[in-house]
């Protein structure tokens, strides 16, 4: 039971909690203490040290919008953003209530006419912006995966396809998201049907840019994974005369899954980085736009807000990476020797 918990924690990247659990269970407490010190205490100390240095150095830097905020100020601004969010939710609830009331009265007075509710017009809160960013990055990531995995499989299975696509891949791979964005925005605008918008225009542009920049690691890793499928396993497929669909589904895909997931993990990381830049320019109402708006407003709390956003981006990026690592560990099969 205990080992099961520890095994699960290690799989999801919480291996540092292991000694605490062992200590609680009373397993070799003397050996656990140094492990706890190393795995938990040292990281905490280094974060504290970092904050102290930051706090000491920050007030010494003068900018044209005041001094650079220290950790305390940033923390209080984060609290402020949270308060704003709660207030925002309240207002939104009030708005919905009021609309419901209006609807009842409207329907009493004009039973033959259709009621159209008035949408809430308040600007989105910080939390809403985080949600928008996450939705955008996952949309882009999904597009990238749907494009990259099949092409990767083709490249891995046929060296001819790979030779044909390789120059295109190599040339498009290093292109910056900022170079893609104008092209994508123009194309989206051209193909966009404003009468029947399925998605916001900015959302679509940002997601496509994220997809364009993040599909390469998945594509390349899938190709490597597929081309390095164990030859013995392919011989099994040959002896059994498996059809191409069964061969891909039962042999090639499962054996290249670890590679594919490594690629997906890298892709999501790239996508999250690209997203902020894309949102800034495409004005997608996510974290990128938040930073841009704060920068434009240049009030005394601008820097603190932006730093809150930076930390948020970092924490979310870390969490996404952990999520993918967990998935990666779940799909990888370890072959026990003999």
């Amino acid at each position: 039971m205990l080992n099961r918990i520890i095994h699960t924690l290690e799989k999801i990247g919480f291996g540092w909690l292991t000694p605490v659990i062992r200590l609680c269970a009373g397993q070799a407490p003397k050996e656990q203490l140094p492990l706890i010190a190393k795995g938990i205490l040292v990281p905490i100390l280094s974060v504290v040290l970092f904050c102290l240095v930051w706090a000491a150095a920050a007030p010494k830097v003068q900018t044209n919008i005041g001094t650079v905020p220290g950790p305390g100020e940033v923390f209080s601004q984060a609290g402020q953003l949270w308060e704003d969010h709660k207030e925002h939710r309240e207002r939104r609830a009030q708005h919905a209530e009021r609309q419901a009331e209006l609807q009842v009265r409207f329907e009493e007075r004009f039973p033959d006419r259709e009621w159209t509710p008035r949408p809430f017009t308040g600007s989105p809160s910080y939390m809403d912006q985080i949600v928008v960013s996450l939705k955008t990055v996952f949309a882009g990531f999904l597009i990238a995966s749907f494009v990259a995995i099949p092409i990767g499989i083709l490249c891995g299975m046929s060296s001819t396809v790979y030779a044909g696509l390789n120059p295109i891949i190599q040339i498009l791979k290093p292109v910056s998201p900022l170079a893609w964005l104008p092209i994508v925005m123009i194309l989206v605008a051209a193909l966009y049907n404003p009468a029947n918008p399925m998605f916001e225009r900015a959302f679509l542009s940002s997601a496509i840019v994220v997809a364009l920049c993040s599909l390469w690691p998945t594509l390349i890793n899938t190709a490597i994974g597929v081309s390095s499928v164990d030859k013995d396993h392919l011989n099994v497929a040959k002896v059994l005369k498996l059809g191409p669909a069964t061969r891909i589904w039962k042999i090639i895909l499962p054996s290249s899954l670890p590679y594919i997931f490594t690629g997906l993990r890298l892709s999501l990381g790239v996508g999250w980085m690209v997203l902020i830049a894309a949102e800034m320019l495409a004005q997608n109402p996510g974290l990128g736009k938040f930073i841009w708006d704060m920068y434009q407003s240049s009030s005394s709390s601008t820097l603190a807000y932006i730093m809150v956003a930076v930390i948020t981006i970092g924490i979310i990026g870390f969490a996404l990476d952990r999520l993918m690592l967990t998935l990666q560990n779940l799909v990888s099969f370890e072959e026990k020797p003999g």
């Binding site: 164990d230 013995d232 396993h233 011989n235 099994v236 002896v239 039962k250 042999i251 499962p254 054996s255 899954l257 099969f333 072959e335």
Partner: peptide
């Protein structure tokens, strides 16, 4: 022709 390989060549994920 059923083949038994030197390494059993099972698919380890099945």
């Amino acid at each position: 022709r059923g083949v038994v390989f030197q390494s059993p060549c099972l698919l380890p994920w099945m």
